[in-house]
């Protein structure tokens, strides 16, 4: 459904130093810098797949979504979405996709969502009866009712987002590009939107590419994730594989009958913490079974727990490392 080959996007930005001197220099001798937002991206997505698109701020996620939806033209590379070249923005293509952005709205601010939805129905050539049926179906799924008759400006953020989704999905697109669809929503509204997206994907077999800073969205919806890092693809696979890639070790927590010195555990792995009866070890995934067996036979273990480090933490450390390396 989606094929991306060597996709790159470079933006030319003017550089200006602060202060009067910088302003005058900028006026007379303007300097530009090429910023590579996306560089040599390769991936493909099958029909009906739900894929999470992860990366720190400025990694190129939104730029990629804009290229995939045909909003901006790539600087290099090839793109194919539903058999179309997105940048040509042919009607047949536009009728099969949608792009929902959590920080942007298409609904007319001063009118009820139904007015904007009526325009969408006409634009996509959906007859009045069918449009009514689809609105009713989607409104049920999104738990929207009289909100559709209230001016958009009077709706809460969650209600607005749900109405945005309804308006964007009225034409039943086969490909959904979702950029932070749960941005700013409270926990219950986030859950409602997640449930809706899962249900939409199940019912219509739509292909979904989703970016979100809430790992909950990704873990709940996407079996596969693409991690983009400094404009390049860092990982393409399931979340578990990403965890292994980011952290090739697992956390093992031991509760012991009596206290042992820290040195007693150093041969088994990295001691993360040590408090009398409790020890936290980081053990390489490749020798986890043997190491745990050795620990159990060599120490009086009361309780043992094996965990993956939280994905949020791994991502945070990766992103903060990226931010540090990006500093001049």
């Amino acid at each position: 459904m989606i094929q991306v080959r060597d996709l790159s996007k470079t933006f030319r930005v003017a550089e200006k130093q602060p202060g009067l001197q910088g302003t005058l220099r900028h006026l007379l001798l303007r300097r530009h810098r090429d910023v590579e937002a996306v560089s040599g991206l390769n991936f493909s997505i099958e029909e009906g797949e739900m894929v999470g698109f992860l990366g720190p701020n400025g990694a190129g996620k939104t730029t990629t979504l804009k290229m995939l939806s045909g909003l901006i033209h790539p600087s290099a590379g090839e793109l194919s979405v539903a058999g179309y070249q997105p940048e040509r923005r042919q009607c047949g293509f536009l009728e099969q996709i949608t792009l929902v952005m959590g920080n942007k709205q298409q609904l007319i601010w001063d009118l009820p969502p139904l007015d904007s939805i009526r325009v969408n129905a006409a634009v996509y050539g959906i007859d009045a009866i069918e449009a009514k049926r689809r609105v009713s179906e989607l409104a049920d799924m999104l738990e929207l009712g009289e909100e559709l008759h209230r001016p958009v400006r009077k709706l809460s953020l969650g209600q607005r987002m749900k109405a945005e989704l309804l308006a964007s999905l009225l034409h039943q697109p086969r490909v959904l590009f979702l950029d932070e669809p749960t941005l700013g929503l409270d926990v219950s509204a986030q859950a409602r939107v997640r449930d809706f997206l899962a249900e939409y994907n199940r019912r219509f077999g739509a292909t979904v590419l989703l970016t979100s800073h809430y790992m909950g969205d990704i873990t709940a919806l996407c079996e596969r994730v693409l991690l983009i890092h400094q404009g390049q693809l860092f990982h393409d696979g399931d979340l578990e594989a990403l965890t292994s890639k980011l952290a090739p070790f697992r956390q093992v927590r031991l509760e012991l009958q009596r206290a042992y010195p820290m040195a007693a555990f150093e041969a088994y792995g990295t001691v993360e913490s040590h408090q009398e009866h409790q020890v936290m070890l980081l053990i390489n995934r490749n020798c986890l079974t043997e190491t745990v067996a050795a620990l159990l036979s060599n120490f009086p273990v009361v309780d043992l727990e094996v965990n993956d480090p939280p994905i949020e933490e791994l991502m945070r450390s990766l992103f903060s490392a990226a931010a540090t390396s990006a500093l001049p």
């Binding site: 909003l71 949608t98 942007k104």
Partner: peptide, 12 residues
Amino acid sequence: TGKLSPYLLQPL
């Protein structure tokens, strides 16, 4: 401000 974007994504 990018408000043009939703219009560009529709077949009109």
